[in-house]
Amino acid sequence: GKMTGIVKWFNADKGFGFITPDDGSKDVFVHFSAIQNDGYKSLDEGQKVSFTIESGAKGPAAGNVTSL
Results as ranks from 00 to 15, higher is better:
G1T: 10
G1M: 09
G1N: 10
G1S: 09
G1E: 15
G1V: 08
K2V: 15
K2T: 15
K2G: 11
K2Q: 14
K2F: 15
M3N: 09
M3A: 09
M3D: 04
M3K: 12
M3Y: 13
M3T: 11
M3I: 14
T4Q: 08
T4S: 10
T4K: 08
T4M: 10
G5T: 00
G5P: 00
G5Q: 00
G5K: 00
G5D: 00
G5M: 00
G5R: 00
G5V: 00
I6L: 09
I6D: 03
I6P: 01
I6M: 10
I6N: 06
I6W: 11
I6G: 03
I6T: 14
I6Y: 12
V7F: 02
V7N: 00
V7A: 02
V7I: 09
V7H: 00
V7P: 00
K8V: 06
K8R: 11
K8H: 11
K8T: 06
K8P: 01
K8M: 04
K8N: 06
K8E: 02
W9E: 02
W9H: 04
W9A: 03
W9S: 04
W9N: 03
F10S: 01
F10L: 02
F10V: 04
F10Q: 01
F10C: 02
F10G: 01
N11R: 11
N11Q: 07
N11T: 05
N11F: 09
N11Y: 08
N11E: 05
N11A: 09
N11C: 07
A12H: 15
A12N: 11
A12R: 14
A12D: 10
A12T: 15
A12Q: 13
A12V: 14
D13L: 13
D13W: 15
D13C: 11
D13M: 14
D13S: 13
K14H: 11
K14E: 06
K14F: 13
K14S: 08
K14V: 10
K14T: 06
G15M: 04
G15I: 02
G15Q: 04
G15C: 03
F16W: 15
F16H: 06
F16D: 01
F16E: 03
F16C: 04
F16N: 02
G17L: 01
G17V: 01
G17E: 00
G17I: 01
G17A: 02
G17R: 00
G17Q: 00
G17N: 00
G17D: 00
F18K: 04
F18R: 03
F18V: 05
F18T: 03
F18W: 10
F18M: 08
F18E: 03
I19G: 00
I19L: 08
I19V: 04
I19D: 00
I19M: 02
I19S: 00
I19E: 00
T20C: 10
T20E: 09
T20L: 11
T20N: 06
T20S: 12
T20K: 11
T20D: 03
P21W: 04
P21K: 03
P21T: 06
P21E: 02
P21F: 04
D22R: 04
D22V: 08
D22Y: 08
D22K: 05
D22T: 10
D22H: 08
D23V: 07
D23H: 07
D23Y: 08
D23Q: 07
D23A: 05
D23R: 04
D23P: 03
D23F: 07
G24D: 06
G24N: 10
G24T: 05
G24Q: 08
G24S: 07
S25T: 14
S25F: 08
S25L: 07
S25Y: 07
S25N: 10
S25W: 06
S25D: 09
S25M: 09
K26Q: 13
K26C: 06
K26M: 11
D27H: 04
D27V: 05
D27W: 04
D27M: 06
V28Y: 05
V28N: 02
F29A: 03
F29M: 03
F29I: 03
F29K: 02
F29D: 01
F29Q: 02
V30M: 06
V30R: 00
V30Y: 04
V30C: 05
V30G: 01
V30H: 00
V30I: 08
H31K: 03
H31M: 04
H31T: 04
F32C: 07
F32E: 09
F32K: 13
F32V: 13
F32D: 03
F32S: 11
F32I: 12
S33I: 05
S33A: 09
S33F: 05
S33K: 10
S33E: 05
S33W: 06
S33L: 10
A34S: 12
A34F: 04
A34G: 07
A34Q: 11
A34M: 07
A34Y: 04
I35D: 02
I35H: 03
I35S: 03
I35G: 02
I35K: 02
Q36S: 13
Q36C: 06
Q36F: 09
Q36P: 05
Q36Y: 07
Q36M: 14
Q36W: 08
Q36V: 15
N37H: 14
N37Y: 12
N37Q: 15
N37F: 12
N37T: 15
N37I: 14
N37V: 15
D38W: 07
D38N: 12
D38P: 14
D38T: 11
D38M: 10
D38E: 15
D38L: 10
D38S: 10
D38Q: 11
D38V: 09
D38C: 08
G39D: 08
G39V: 09
G39P: 10
G39L: 11
G39C: 08
Y40G: 10
Y40R: 13
Y40S: 15
Y40N: 13
K41L: 10
K41R: 13
K41N: 08
K41A: 09
K41T: 09
K41Y: 07
K41M: 08
K41W: 08
S42T: 15
S42H: 15
S42D: 08
S42W: 13
S42Y: 15
S42F: 14
L43M: 05
L43E: 01
L43G: 01
L43R: 01
D44G: 14
D44A: 13
D44K: 15
D44F: 14
D44I: 14
E45H: 14
E45Q: 14
E45T: 15
E45C: 08
G46Q: 05
G46T: 03
G46R: 05
G46I: 02
G46F: 06
G46N: 06
G46K: 05
Q47N: 08
Q47T: 13
Q47K: 06
Q47L: 07
Q47M: 13
Q47S: 11
K48Y: 12
K48H: 15
K48N: 06
K48L: 09
K48T: 08
K48A: 11
V49I: 05
V49C: 04
V49G: 00
V49R: 00
V49F: 01
S50L: 10
S50P: 00
S50Y: 09
S50H: 09
S50Q: 12
S50G: 07
S50N: 08
F51S: 00
F51W: 02
F51R: 00
F51V: 01
F51T: 00
F51Y: 11
T52H: 09
T52D: 12
T52E: 13
T52Y: 11
T52I: 11
T52C: 05
T52V: 12
T52F: 10
T52G: 04
I53S: 04
I53L: 14
I53W: 07
I53Y: 11
I53F: 08
I53A: 05
I53D: 02
I53C: 05
E54H: 07
E54Q: 10
E54M: 09
E54N: 08
E54W: 08
E54I: 13
S55L: 14
S55K: 14
S55E: 13
S55H: 13
S55I: 14
S55N: 15
S55P: 12
S55C: 07
G56L: 08
G56Q: 13
G56E: 12
G56W: 08
A57G: 12
A57R: 14
A57K: 14
A57H: 15
A57D: 13
A57C: 06
K58D: 11
K58W: 15
K58S: 14
K58R: 15
K58I: 09
K58L: 14
K58H: 15
G59W: 07
G59D: 04
G59C: 04
G59K: 07
G59L: 06
P60D: 10
P60G: 06
P60R: 12
P60A: 10
P60S: 08
A61Y: 15
A61K: 14
A61H: 15
A61M: 15
A61F: 15
A61G: 06
A62P: 01
A62Y: 01
A62G: 03
A62S: 03
A62T: 03
A62D: 01
A62F: 01
G63H: 12
G63R: 06
G63F: 11
G63C: 06
G63I: 12
G63P: 02
G63Y: 10
G63S: 14
G63L: 12
N64W: 09
N64P: 02
N64E: 13
N64F: 10
N64Y: 10
V65K: 01
V65P: 01
V65E: 01
V65Y: 00
V65W: 00
T66L: 09
T66N: 11
T66Y: 06
T66S: 11
T66K: 12
T66V: 15
T66H: 11
T66E: 13
T66C: 06
S67K: 14
S67M: 15
S67F: 14
S67Y: 12
S67C: 08
S67T: 13
S67N: 13
L68S: 09
L68C: 06
L68M: 12
L68P: 07
L68I: 15
L68H: 10
L68G: 07
L68T: 11
L68V: 13
